[in-house]
């Protein structure tokens, strides 16, 4: 442990309102601390910013998986373990369950939260591409009220996001639709099979209408300063029947939409090719389903 512990303080608020009040009245002072699976690593290295941390782990207002006709609502503190165990998520949003299964070790899955993963804003986050592939929305709360935002508009740059210092992610909303004629794809290319950080991660969702792609969302991790959607590639596929030419056009476009870099885990060249290759695998799966 390299941290100088006396430089840190933590406080456990009584309720969500209490937490929001503290964040609002001391905006530069307090930082929410959920499962702590990212922050504890920085603390161990002596690199955690010296702030007061708000232990929100016990706030019941941020917990639980709820469903109504149009949305599944996941409390910001929903853990990876809870995600994997949810039958409705397994059935309707398998990409998210797969992402949860491949995140960290069991201990991390028990503590790591979806809201925390989003707010940590790592471009290599495992759950984020899955959420993007389902068009998730965020419910963000502050003392002045609740606002909703498509998740695809949340991340604005490396570790930059549309979340004010007095706000907390209350819930993640997944829009429901019929499970018929859907194709889900999630692949994480990690540094190893388990307990790994992704080098490239691709999540995709397609809804068919007859032999045409009615709806299509493609999201990637670890290939840009944030997790990204690939709107141009999506547009090429949407409303079309799959053909060899269309696949090639989509692949070439996807290659243009990403901007990976060299880092300690992998190389730009590798990531560029692998992103396109696993996209190709997804297209092959689609073809296998619907192409003649």
């Amino acid at each position: 442990m390299r941290a100088y512990l006396p430089a840190y303080d933590a406080l456990t608020p009584d309720s969500l309102d209490h937490a929001l009040e503290l964040l609002d009245t001391h905006p530069e002072e307090y930082v929410p601390f959920a499962g702590g699976t990212d922050l504890m690593v920085l603390l161990d290295w002596g690199k955690l910013p010296r702030k007061k941390y708000l232990n929100i782990w016990n706030l019941s207002e941020l917990k639980g998986i709820q469903e109504d006709e149009s949305f599944i609502s996941l409390g910001g503190l929903t853990t990876y373990t809870e995600i994997q165990a949810s039958e409705v998520l397994q059935k309707e949003f398998p990409n998210l369950c797969q992402a949860a299964r491949w995140s960290g070790a069991w201990a991390i899955q028990n503590r790591g939260t979806l809201g925390g993963n989003i707010a940590n804003a790592s471009p290599a986050a495992d759950s984020s591409p899955a959420l993007l592939s389902y068009g998730a929305e965020l419910e963000i709360v502050s003392r002045s009220g609740v606002r909703r935002l498509p998740y695809s508009e949340f991340h604005t740059g490396y570790k930059e996001m549309r979340l004010e210092k007095n706000e907390i992610i209350r819930a993640i909303l997944l829009p429901r639709s019929s499970v018929e004629n859907c194709h889900h794809y999630y692949r994480k290319v990690g540094t190893r099979k388990a307990q790994a950080i992704s080098k490239v991660c691709l999540a995709a969702f397609v809804k068919w209408e007859g032999n045409k792609i009615k709806e299509c969302r493609i999201a990637l991790g670890s290939v840009a300063p944030t997790v990204i959607r690939c709107p141009k590639s999506e547009e090429i596929l949407t409303g079309k029947t799959l053909s060899r030419e269309l696949k090639e056009e989509a692949k070439a476009t996807l290659g243009q939409e990403i901007s990976p870099i060299d880092d300690v885990r992998s190389t730009k060249d590798y990531r560029l090719e692998i992103a396109v290759n696993i996209f190709d695998e997804f297209l092959d799966e689609l073809g296998g389903c619907k192409e003649g």
């Binding site: 190893r192 099979k193 388990a194 950080i197 300690v264 885990r265």
Partner: peptide, 16 residues
């Protein structure tokens, strides 16, 4: 050595 963490120095696990 700049990947001096077990997150980035990739020792295989039993799954590998």
């Amino acid at each position: 050595m700049i990947n001096n963490q077990m997150t980035n120095y990739i020792m295989p696990t039993s799954a590998d």
